[in-house]
Amino acid sequence: MTTDLAIEAENLARSYRTRTGWLRPQRKTIEAVRGVHLAVGRGELFGLLGPNGAGKTTTIKMLNTLLLPTSGTARILGYDVARDALEVRRRIGYVFGGDRGLYERLSALDNLRYFAELYGVEPREQLPRIQELLETVGLSGREKERVEGYSRGMRQKLHIARGLLHRPQVLFLDEPSIGVDPAAARELRRVVADLVAGGTTVLLTTHYMAEADELCDRIAVIASGTLRAEGTPAELKDRVRKLDVLEVEVHDAVGPEHLQRLRDTAGIEQATVETSGTVDVVTVHARPSHGTHAAVLAALADLRTGKVTTREPTLEDAYLSIINGTTTGSA
């Protein structure tokens, strides 16, 4: 079976029935994913971004046969994920963030030998394949150490090696760099980029916008179970290119009333705050205007403000704009 698309989803949906309460229990349906459409080409690195609870992991689990869709269809390399689950599993790898999925008291080498047996790798191919993957992910020379002594970054590299043992054509990476230090995250990005250069199709979820901007050919943003936007990183950033992005350092605590005051100000589309050390940084997206700076400072007049800077919009700005509903649709 041949197709130019590695991953296809049409109106993909998944809902759950939950029960709440003890004395008078009530049942309700939660729609985790609602009508998702995807088309990912062979050899593409496709990013799926969204806040916690948006439906990213549920979507991936439907695509890799761990969950059955409530409705809609999905195909991997032309094989239906519901009807042809075994054929799909032979062609995919799944790597998730965190510490699960490895045997702590075994060495990396023994872990990979065990999973090679599970994945049906031919016995005569196992050791050469394992050595190749250890070299690929940068664990050569450390393979005989117990996993319990590995750092978070080393564990993630081992997860990737495990997911590649059977030479999958499609690899799902679900937040692979979560909790990893910057140096290890850079190494993981190099490994992923090399995989794609070698022809592997990768679907990546991440909360790190710089990582998605650097790696992904195209990105889809999901929120509340629905796709809000899709395009290249440049196309998504173009959505907010028309806006000024102002950052204001504030030396007092910024409360919800200050953010609401900013959001109610004419010309301001979005206002958020993050704490950086002892300073709050207010980020404002506003339509270009000579009075923008004055309007922002007026809304924060009862606080001690410091440096005000204007910068180019980033992928993170575009992402926040999309999930907050100030820009929607395909790029």
Rank of each mutant, 00 (worst) to 15 (best):
Y114A: 05
Y114D: 00
Y114C: 02
Y114K: 03
Y114L: 09
F115Y: 14
F115H: 01
F115I: 05
F115E: 03
F115M: 04
F115D: 04
A116P: 05
A116D: 07
A116R: 07
E117F: 05
L118Y: 12
G120Q: 13
V121G: 03
E122G: 00
E122V: 03
E122D: 12
E122K: 10
R124Y: 01
R124M: 02
E125H: 06
E125A: 11
E125V: 00
E125L: 09
E125Q: 14
E125G: 00
E125D: 09
E125N: 04
E125P: 01
E125I: 01
Q126I: 05
Q126V: 08
Q126T: 12
L127S: 06
L127D: 10
L127N: 09
L127I: 10
P128F: 02
P128S: 05
P128V: 02
R129Q: 03
R129Y: 00
R129V: 00
I130K: 08
Q131S: 11
Q131G: 09
Q131E: 15
E132M: 01
L133C: 13
L133M: 07
L133G: 08
L134N: 07
L134Y: 00
L134D: 05
L134I: 08
E135S: 15
T136C: 05
T136G: 08
T136M: 08
V137Y: 00
V137T: 05
G138T: 10
L139E: 03
L139V: 03
L139H: 12
S140K: 08
S140N: 10
S140P: 00
S140M: 04
G141Y: 07
G141N: 15
G141M: 07
R142D: 15
E143N: 14
E143A: 15
E143Q: 08
E143L: 07
E143M: 15
E143G: 13
K144I: 09
K144C: 11
K144W: 04
K144M: 14
E145G: 15
E145H: 12
E145S: 12
V147W: 02
V147A: 14
V147Y: 09
V147I: 15
V147M: 06
E148V: 14
E148K: 13
E148N: 15
E148Q: 15
G149F: 08
G149V: 14
G149A: 13
G149D: 11
Y150Q: 06
Y150M: 12
Y150K: 13
Y150H: 13
Y150T: 10
Y150V: 11
Y150S: 06
Y150N: 11
Y150W: 10
S151K: 08
S151W: 09
S151D: 15
S151R: 14
R152Q: 15
R152F: 04
G153S: 09
G153E: 11
M154V: 09
M154H: 07
M154T: 07
R155L: 05
R155Y: 06
R155G: 01
Q156G: 02
K157R: 11
K157F: 01
K157G: 00
L158G: 03
L158C: 08
H159G: 11
H159A: 13
I160M: 11
I160S: 02
I160L: 10
I160N: 09
A161N: 06
A161T: 13
A161K: 08
A161C: 11
R162M: 04
R162Y: 06
R162K: 14
R162I: 12
G163H: 05
